[in-house]
Structure formats: structure tokens, C-alpha cells
């Protein structure tokens, strides 16, 4: 039983990692007042760019850089539409998701000709698992052993980075000048403007960070979690991250918990496949899979708590007569 739990938590960490990156990405964007349903597209774009570059250059790190750059470019398109041209944030997000879904397949067919995949990544072209010191030695110690050796040790660097990003995000958002201004822009851009700060510049910077984090999420998918790019491999993770962002009420630590919850549900769903539970029978996998979405809907409807987003979210900033 204990071992099963450790295995499931281990899986939870792996599954949650891209969600954490993407949800934090969304947090930066949405706290600055930009709705981002383009998380999905940025993850997918980065996953492709990272896998393609990693396979060409044979380095996961170079792949990561390409993934991040691709994701930032997409974030800048979103910014150009929403900030500079006061476009609808949702429409822009849908556009980006659609363009990326088509473009990744088109380009990968052109470059690699493998039915929309990239070649399998091997060796340094992937982020490999890191084993902590003494992990093997204490693996047999009861309780602590499995926790240290199996759960904490043995992940790739991006998993640790994702978890490290949570306190970093918290610090940036709540403890720095940039964070203060970013939160202010999402709540009342007029206040920021009259304080002599450029609303657009802050929002663009928030989107750059959003791009970086989505880039990490995408690169994780194709060069760490998997060994290459597959068509539509983001498979709704961007939307689930958005759900986690709402479920965590746009705050870093609750967002982390929401990602872990959603990741755990995924691990449970995999585990429960075909398992008979005494007295209940088989629980359909799909019932567990939809829980994140159902929970988010219930939260939004105010049946379980209340989700109140940043006040100025989704509205273009137009300078008005004071």
C-alpha cells in the first residue's frame, strides 16, 4: 500500500510538472490582466521547437532554449494583438492555439517527414533523471528510504525547477517592485498609468515571463517526459493549467496545490484502469479524468468557494480622460 502510494506520488510529480510551469505562466499573464487561453499553443509550440532543436543539435539544453524562444514569440504575438491593438484576448488565444496546432505538424513533416513526429531523442538530447547522493544506499531504509530514493530522487532537472519556480514566483509577485506593478496593472491599470508607469511595458514583460515558463513546460513534455515530439502532444495540458490557475485562485501556492491535485487525479486514473474496487466495482477512468474540469466549473459557479480573478482582466487598457 505504502509503495503504491509512493509510486503514485512519484507519477504525480512527473505529470504535474508541465502543469505547474504552465499554470505559473498563466499566473504572470493573468495577474497582469491578460487572459491567456493560448497556454496550450505555447506549450505545443515549445515542445516542437525543443524536440526539433534537440534532435538537430543533440543537446537538450539547446532544445530548451529554442523551445523558450518559440514560446516567447507566440506570447509576443498575443501581446501585439491584445496590448498594442486592443484585440480580444480570447480570440487571440484561440488564434495562437490554432496556428500552432497546424504549424507544428506542417514543419515537422517538412523537416523530419515522420508523420508529424520528430526523431526519437537519445542521450544528451533528453533531460535525464538525476539520482540524489546515497539514494541507492538508503533505498532499503523503511519509510524514509522510498520517500528519498523513489519520490524525491530520480527526476530530471526540469521537475525540480518547476517546484522551485513556485517560491520564486511567490517572491517575484509579492516581494518585488515588478510584482507590485504587475498586480496593480491587473487590478487597475489607470492607477499604474497615473503613477507614471507604462501599462503596456509591464504587460509585455509579464507575457515574456509567461512565454519562458510555457517554454519550459513544452520542452519538458518533448525532451524530458517523452523522447520526442508527437502531434498534439500538449493534449489539453494548457487548458488544464488554466483550470488549475482558476482553481488556485491566481495565487502561487494554491495553484501549485491545484496542479498537484490534478496531477494526482491523472495518476489515479492510470492506476485505476481496470481495477475493481470492492463494493463499487470498476470506476471508469474518464470519471476521474474529468474531475479537474468538473471541480473548476463548480468553483467558478460558486458551489465550492469562490474564484475572483484580477479585476481588469481581459479588458484592453485605453487611456481615458482622467
Amino acid at each position: 500500500m505504502f509503495e503504491t502510494l509512493i509510486l503514485m506520488l512519484d507519477a504525480t510529480m512527473r505529470v504535474s510538472t508541465p502543469l505547474i510551469f504552465a499554470a505559473l505562466a498563466g499566473l504572470f499573464s493573468e495577474r497582469a490582466g491578460i487572459v491567456d487561453i493560448g497556454l496550450e499553443g505555447k506549450i505545443l509550440g515549445s515542445a516542437f521547437a525543443a524536440a526539433a532543436a534537440a534532435s538537430v543539435f543533440g543537446s537538450a539544453w539547446i532544445g530548451l532554449c529554442f523551445g523558450i524562444v518559440a514560446s516567447i514569440c507566440l506570447a509576443m504575438i498575443h501581446g501585439f494583438a491584445c496590448i498594442t491593438h486592443r484585440g480580444d484576448h480570447i480570440v487571440s488565444g484561440v488564434a495562437i492555439n490554432t496556428i500552432v496546432a497546424g504549424l507544428t505538424v506542417t514543419l515537422s513533416m517538412y523537416w523530419f517527414g515522420m508523420g508529424g513526429q520528430t526523431p526519437a531523442l537519445v542521450g544528451d538530447a533528453r533531460f535525464l533523471d538525476i539520482t540524489f547522493p546515497f539514494a541507492d544506499a538508503i533505498a532499503s531504509v523503511p519509510v524514509i528510504g522510498p520517500i528519498y530514493s523513489n519520490l524525491l530522487s530520480g527526476h530530471n532537472i526540469l521537475v525540480y525547477l518547476a517546484f522551485a519556480m513556485v517560491p520564486v514566483t511567490y517572491w517575484v509577485i509579492y516581494k518585488t517592485r515588478f510584482g507590485l506593478r504587475l498586480r496593480a496593472v491587473g487590478e487597475n491599470p489607470h492607477a499604474v498609468d497615473t503613477a507614471g508607469i507604462s501599462v503596456a511595458f509591464i504587460r509585455y514583460r509579464a507575457l515574456i515571463i509567461c512565454g519562458i515558463l510555457c517554454g519550459l513546460a513544452g520542452a519538458y513534455l518533448s525532451t524530458a517526459h517523452n523522447a520526442g515530439f508527437l502531434k498534439d502532444m500538449s493534449a489539453g495540458k494548457g487548458y488544464m493549467a488554466l483550470a488549475a490557475l482558476i482553481f488556485g485562485k491566481w495565487r502561487p501556492v494554491p495553484v501549485l496545490l491545484a496542479c498537484l491535485l490534478f496531477g494526482f487525479l491523472d495518476a489515479v486514473a492510470v492506476r485505476m484502469q481496470g481495477v475493481e474496487i470492492p463494493g463499487i466495482g470498476q470506476v471508469p477512468v474518464q470519471a476521474i479524468e474529468v474531475l479537474p474540469y468538473v471541480l473548476t466549473v463548480l468553483l467558478l459557479a460558486g458551489f465550492i468557494g469562490k474564484a475572483i480573478g484580477p479585476k481588469a482582466i481581459g479588458r484592453p487598457y485605453v487611456k481615458e480622460r482622467a
Binding site: 480570440v91 490554432t98 496556428i99 497546424g102
Partner: peptide, 9 residues
């Protein structure tokens, strides 16, 4: 799909 996305954009 790319063209479609560009039209939306």
C-alpha cells in the same frame, strides 16, 4: 489549420 488560425488572428 494554419491558415484558419491566421484568419482568426
Amino acid at each position: 489549420v494554419v491558415i484558419q488560425g491566421l484568419v482568426i488572428l
